[in-house]
Structures are given as C-alpha cells and as structure tokens.
Design a protein around this nucleic acid. Sequence first.
DNA 1: TGATGATAGCTGTCAGACAAGCAGACTGCC
DNA 2: GGCAGTCTGCTTGTCTGACAGCTATCATCA
Lengths: 238, 238
Amino acid sequence: MALRTVKALEKIPRTTLVDEVIAAIRGMLDEEGWTAGTRLPSEHQLSIQLGVGRSTVREALRVLGHLGLVQSRSGLGTFVVGKELAVRHSAPDQEAEALSQFFEFRRATEPAAARLAAERRSSSALSAIKASWQACYAGAQNSSVDDFAALDFSFHISIFEAGENQFLIDAYRAVRPSFIKYVGMVLELGPLTRMMHFHDKLIEAISRQDPLAAVRAVEENFVDTDVRQRMMMLQTSG
Amino acid sequence: MALRTVKALEKIPRTTLVDEVIAAIRGMLDEEGWTAGTRLPSEHQLSIQLGVGRSTVREALRVLGHLGLVQSRSGLGTFVVGKELAVRHSAPDQEAEALSQFFEFRRATEPAAARLAAERRSSSALSAIKASWQACYAGAQNSSVDDFAALDFSFHISIFEAGENQFLIDAYRAVRPSFIKYVGMVLELGPLTRMMHFHDKLIEAISRQDPLAAVRAVEENFVDTDVRQRMMMLQTSG
DNA sequence: TGATGATAGCTGTCAGACAAGCAGACTGCC
DNA sequence: GGCAGTCTGCTTGTCTGACAGCTATCATCA
C-alpha cells in the first residue's frame, strides 16, 4: 500500500483565466444582490470590467449557462436564472465544509446508482466495472495519491454507467475534480483496507444483480465516516 | 387550473451552433471507439471537420470539460476522460426512456435535498421557499405550461438551496432544461392537485425542521408515478 | 552517452469584424 | 390621435487571424 505522497514541487495552482472569470461571475451573483431575471452587464462590459478578452468571458458564460445559473438570449443580453447561495457560511474552515458537502453528495447519489447498476447492468458494463477495479487495485501499489484517486473515480463512474441513467452519470462526472481532491485528502488517513473490502462487496452484489445488497454495500461505506472530524485530524497532523 | 397549452406557433427549435457541436462531439465519444486517454483531433482540425469556427469548438470543449467528459492540456491537446454510454438502448421510445431516467434522477436527489433542507434551513431560506411556492401557486392560474414548469423548478431549487450543499445544488440546477421539458409534458396529464398537496406537506416538514417527514413527503410524491406508462398515454392521446 | 537547444504543433487568450436578433424610438400615413 | 412600418443602437452568435506560452520530439553538440 505504497501511496507516494509526492506533492511534486507542491503543485503550482495554474488555473486558467476562464475558470477565474467563472469564479468571479459566480461571486458577483452572490454579492451584487442580483435576483433571478436581472440582466448581467454585456459581454463587452464584462470583458472591460474584468480586464480580459470577450472570448474569455463568452467561454465562462457558456459554462455558467450550462450550469443553469445564467441564460443568454441573442439580442437581449444574459440574465440571471437562479440566485446563488447567499453566504457561504463558516468561512474559517471552508475546506472542511466543502469536504463534508462532497461526501453528502456521494451519499445521496451513489446508493441510487448502485441500485440501478444492480438492476440493469449489462455483461459488458459488468466487465468494465471489474476492469476499473483491477486497475484501481493495481494502482494502489505504486501510484501517487492523486493518480489513485483518479482510478478510484473511474471505478465509481463505471458503476454509474452500468446504471444507464444519463442524468446521474452527468452529475457524477461533473464532480471528478472534487473527487480527486477530496478522496486524495481522505486517503492519506489510510482507510484503504476497508475501502477495498467495500469494493469487493459492491461488485459482487452488482454481479449477482442484487439491488438491496448493492445499496447496503454503498451505505456501509459511508457509515462512521465523520468527515468533518477527519478533516480536523488532517489539519492538525499536516 | 387554466394551463394554457399554447404551443405558440409550435416553437421553432432554434438551437445554437455551439450546442450542436457539443452534441456532435458527444456523439463522437460514443461512436469512434475512443477510450479514456485518447486524444481528440485538435481544435483546428475539429473546426474544419465540423465546418465551424475555432471559437465555437472551444466553447463546446469548455462545456464538455466542465461536464468531466474531456480535459484540455495546454500544449498537448484535448483528451477523453471517461467514455460515454456505449449505446443508448431502445431507440424507438427514446423520449420515454429519457423521461423515465429524469424522474429516477429526481428520486435520487430530491429526498436527500429535502432532508438537508429540513436539517439546516435558515429562516431566510425558508422564506425563499415559501415565496417560490406562492409564485408557483399563482402561476398555476394563468401561465403557460412551460412557464409553470419553470416556476415549479424555482420552488424545487429553493429547497436544494436551503440544504446548502453546493454539489447537489449544481447538479440539480444543471437539469433545469430537462425539468421544464419533462415536467411540462407530465403536467398535461393533470396531476396538479396531488402535486399541490405534496408541496404543502413538504414545506410544513421543512418549516418545523423534521427531516424524516420531509423525506417522506418527497418520496410520496414519486409513488405510483409510473412515468413510462404515462408517457404512453401521452403519446397515444397526442 | 547525456545534456542542450531548436522545432513544430497544441491550447490559451486577444482583438476586430460582421451577421442576426431585439426593443424602443422615430417617421409618415390614415 | 392612432398605427404600421422603419431606423437605430445595443446585444449575442460566429468567424478569422494573430500571438504567447506550453510540451514532446528530435537533432545537435560536448
């Protein structure tokens, strides 16, 4: 179980300009008191305001549009669809809060996916799950934490794919970056053995098409995972 | 309950070029046998191949990147992250399948959101829920089906917001277009009365911070909603 | 052999251009 | 006065060309 905690030269953040603009506009939605229906500044104005090119603003707005936050209408402008969460509470341990929310999200979606997978899995989907699991298992020997988390994600998404629900698949795939980040964090605490066991049970349940057992396997994986507490441990130890 | 089924001039499709490119590339991921790690054609090549400008391709790839389907790396290219579902089964009634999947998705996410909302709702979040519900109720009198569906979505997303889980909020918001489409379809079958009742029970549960009752209310709303069967009715009646 | 530097192709970003959509003002007619 | 049609200015949608910065590859040289 030699997970190299390599932190290669402490990983320069290197985010893209578009992502920064996305974050900036999300921030505006929070703070400017814009309610649903408000018109945003035009792309041109935004590009000046933020000091970037119009194409950069467009790519950002396109993503926000697909997230359902804004809606662009040709000739009219871009409008706020929903309002963001007013205040991100508990600013001090924002990371811990996000981590906790992330596991809540998994807990909400994974049991449903496991059930669907057990109900519908084709034989090829089952092979895909097993293959991902093989790669995951092999990766535990000699991968960096992040690489292993990526393999673990592949395993989980393969279960969603076996469930054949495009909405759930899309929703889960969208959290891939968070998965890698947070699972990587938690992994350093070393709950690998239990996770391995859980994977085996889950695959077996899906394999014999037993939805109840699949759901149970997933839910057991979350039991006594008080993430916030772990986060504290991580913070004090690191 | 005068939902005008207006179908104003049967609604010209009018999709944007970027969305077509997104669909085209998703199709490629399906059919070209690209596995995770495969490099896509360069943006320049894609723009030629699809007969559009490079910025259009870029906006599409940016969205696909945020969906977690591809990943662009500066200087290297764009790579497939996960593989799409191999074959969308049951091509004949694809709409019915999507509708069914959509309600599966709601069923997976809404109970979790209801529970969180009941646990954490701030008083302002509760006001927001009640306000959305007022608008929704009023809209039932004199809105088009689509407008009403949009109001209903606002109501539901306000519950997610009260739950204060950014991952769930994002996931739910992303299905807004589908919500409006499919809820609009189902509404024409007229289960409005029951829905109204459900909304009342849910708000009450959240209001008195009773997670179990909130979850129960949401789940009752899905009981005996055999969506596929309804879809058939819709098809034969329309 | 091994380090070094040039190179070619890629994404990231920008600026400028034009088409098309839309609301509101404006004009001319009845 | 009322109204239909037109004009105008602003907006998004799309395309093009340009350049910077990144990276793997490969030839070059010590």
